[in-house]
Design a protein around this nucleic acid. Sequence first.
DNA 1: TAGGGGAACTTGTACAAACAAGCGAGCACC
DNA 2: GGTGCTCGCTTGTTTGTACAAGTTCCCCTA
Lengths: 248, 248
Amino acid sequence: MVARYERIADDLREEILAGVHPVGAQLPSEAELAARHRAARGTVRQAVAVLVAEGLVGSRQGARRIVLGNARSQSFAELHSFAQWARANGYRFGGQVILQRRRPPSAVEAARLGAEEVLDVLRIRSLEGEPVLVERTAYASWIAAAVEALPPDCESVTEALYDSSGLVFAYGEHLIDAVPAGAQDARLLGIRRGSPLLRQRRVTTTYEGRPVECSDDRYRAGSVAFSIRNSLVANPLVRRAGDLHFGA
Amino acid sequence: MVARYERIADDLREEILAGVHPVGAQLPSEAELAARHRAARGTVRQAVAVLVAEGLVGSRQGARRIVLGNARSQSFAELHSFAQWARANGYRFGGQVILQRRRPPSAVEAARLGAEEVLDVLRIRSLEGEPVLVERTAYASWIAAAVEALPPDCESVTEALYDSSGLVFAYGEHLIDAVPAGAQDARLLGIRRGSPLLRQRRVTTTYEGRPVECSDDRYRAGSVAFSIRNSLVANPLVRRAGDLHFGA
DNA sequence: TAGGGGAACTTGTACAAACAAGCGAGCACC
DNA sequence: GGTGCTCGCTTGTTTGTACAAGTTCCCCTA
């Protein structure tokens, strides 16, 4: 059973992606959408809020909403799971465990995962036949056994862990920066040492807030980029119009 | 006049940051919060939604909300404006225009800005006295004159343009990846050619959806990282495949 | 013609009420 | 002991109403 507002949001999104509402155009008013879908205004507002959060639509008090983009920007799953992202975008991809062992956690890992022992896994991932990603993940000990049970060439660890243990990765914190390739990175990716890599460090937790893994993913430059669409609305500027008449 | 739900959200955020609700702990129920603040449940829900969107709090049906983090994540202003980010974090910073000229737009810029001519500005930015950022921005012609009127060592272009023209950067689309430093990058940042740089390309528009600028910012590795906190429910960040013609 | 004043429209905030759906703890039963 | 079930609590969805606040555009006036 999908919620009413989700169906309305889906309808609207589809219209936007189909070009019914081109970029820069105005969306129908809440009242009109409410009438069209025979829903209360609150429900329509909830639907539009979804699109605003996705960055597809811009909204400000008093003016009609406008269309900001027409590309589907997608979900947590894509950001978290290389496999889900690659599959959703129709890429050929693969993965291979290079090294896997239990060891005591580093100071950072101990603080993040709160574990006495972690399962350290080194994976290499490929896209369209080319190696693009070196993944170093430390799993909390309570999930280690399930990870060890996976085949070394497991395509999607996220999905495999869900199937085998019902584990759901629900929240993540990500740090993105650039680093030069180390000796091991260079060998695994087939590039020169010191080449630029896009690094994504993350900590993932379950719904209950229990930390699951702590990972350091390094992408070959040019293979992958991160995209963000955002707006002032979520974090309003402190200044207000009115300075306008006096300022310069 | 601040909205009621914003005050409630601020209160809650403050409590979380102060450690009243430590990471992993449960938040008071909506009913309790409503009683405490003498507000309707809907208002409280709106307040909590803010924190959920910020990634501070996790929420799922049936269970009490839990605290996910105790650090504020990046705001739009911080992501958009180097100066505002640096100031908010208490860093010493500076800026200097290296080159500024009008020129015809590239194909990409023409498509994104819809202009016949752009103002091309090359800026270098420093943090704690060290040069960390090379900024190449193409401004749409309708704002070019205002940009040219700014002093070459203008600290915050965003704020200066707001003061002089009432211009507000409202929406942004950002692409983040890693690239090797070119000859000019290397010279300006005082690093070796080929060193890793964290690149943030962005297009910014006004409230009306009118494109203002198209920029290519390159950070020295190690100087800056982007941080994102997300959940299964909502997240703003998306991964994109390489070979990225910007915005296509 | 330029500018001010409104009126109509549109989104934002707040309250109240009701039901649906999921979670967790405790209880009874085997 | 453990398994399954029920019940109360909590969050999710939906509707309705009222007012506040900002935008847009037309019309009237100077």
